[in-house]
Design a protein around this nucleic acid. Sequence first.
DNA 1: CGTCCATTTGAGGTGGATCAACCCTAGTGG
DNA 2: CCACTAGGGTTGATCCACCTCAAATGGACG
Lengths: 230, 230
Amino acid sequence: MLTQSTAAPSLNINRVVPGPLPSSEPFCGLAGHAGLIATEFTYRKDEEIYGEDEPAEYVYQVIRGAVRTYKLLSDGRRQIGAFHLPGDVFGLESGIKHRLAAEAIIDTSVRLVKRRSLEQAAGTDVQVAHKLWTMTADDLKHAEEHMLLLGRKSAMERVANFLLEMDRRLAVAGMMALPMCRRDIGDYLGLTLETVSRALSQLNDEGVLGFSGARQIVLRNRQRLRNMDI
Amino acid sequence: MLTQSTAAPSLNINRVVPGPLPSSEPFCGLAGHAGLIATEFTYRKDEEIYGEDEPAEYVYQVIRGAVRTYKLLSDGRRQIGAFHLPGDVFGLESGIKHRLAAEAIIDTSVRLVKRRSLEQAAGTDVQVAHKLWTMTADDLKHAEEHMLLLGRKSAMERVANFLLEMDRRLAVAGMMALPMCRRDIGDYLGLTLETVSRALSQLNDEGVLGFSGARQIVLRNRQRLRNMDI
DNA sequence: CGTCCATTTGAGGTGGATCAACCCTAGTGG
DNA sequence: CCACTAGGGTTGATCCACCTCAAATGGACG
């Protein structure tokens, strides 16, 4: 129900587009490095990129589209840990396995490099090693803030927080086009999709935001949202 | 109410006991390194070790006692991110500030090293750099599992999870002596202290655990707890 | 022995979940 | 170009797991 992947991505060899790393914004400042070959890859909407506990062979960067990483309980309950948008790196592990699964939310292109080559580079270049550390530390910072949200914030505070986060990350010209559905938002915020929908409707009624389509949102009063977010 | 620290720890110079790092289990394999000086320090119950957003000048390792790291909302709601027990490292940041506050839960001794000296060591030694990364990655793994707990698990599942975690980390001879109060447990699990108490009472009634004092717990049926934890 | 907290237990309230229609819109095919 | 359909989104009604408020109990310590 939650995952509708149709084929193991590793089998879609025909979609692999190898190439050198571009010198502009190259995997967050990791490229120009001996032995770092980036490959491009495309996933369709809802396609699995990797599964939980799968060997972590690659590190990914979103080029176009959006990705959700999540954990599942045996009865289907899902917690989305993060949404990854163009420019974001995901799938970076210091251990041997991925600890969350990853799926494309919409049609998505990623750049990927072999984790092994990244670790080799880190073994000879302390700058690469430092970059790996700070990327993981940034993920930890996000997780720590999200624990506070999940453990202690009300539904409205969570939704306000989500809107401000997405506004910051993907608004163009004051408008954001959300790639994810209400269920994804709920599974990110520890709520049901109905509760998310009700909170958004209330914010619309209060004039804090405006819709032009369920996933096209414009924030009209960011300060009110910041006050809600505490 | 939540913090009853009586003095800034940096002022308690009289309690500083400088010394070289012992060669056995030395700061999780980081010592024996040029320029890494470890200092010992003691905090009383409920004393603040560092505050949220305070400059991250030191990295700490618990020698004896227990530490909670947490975030606060402006109205006093608290989310404890982790409990740190003897051997655990905490306060390691790649950025300039601590993103959670830290307090001693009971009288606690820590070993501390200057974060700057650790980063210098990492700048010349890739093994140190790698160790910093894996320590942060371990914290991230814990945070990811805790997000699933906070976002999607029931009260009983959370308490079962907590008991198994503490059993693993601090049980001696099948018995655990919890250093923290019910409020701390609640703020760790995103519950109230009453809900924690009721769950523990129910587990006691069902024979899954036994008390010998409110904080002295023996698990009698770990498998039942594992099933509850999903 | 009395005081002070921490903990337990009880009673009742509520925020968000659940269950159930209904609606809207994009995509499809005639 | 429009009718039909399916999936996502909204809204309403009801329920219940956990919270809140309150009081009793227990244990540690002077």
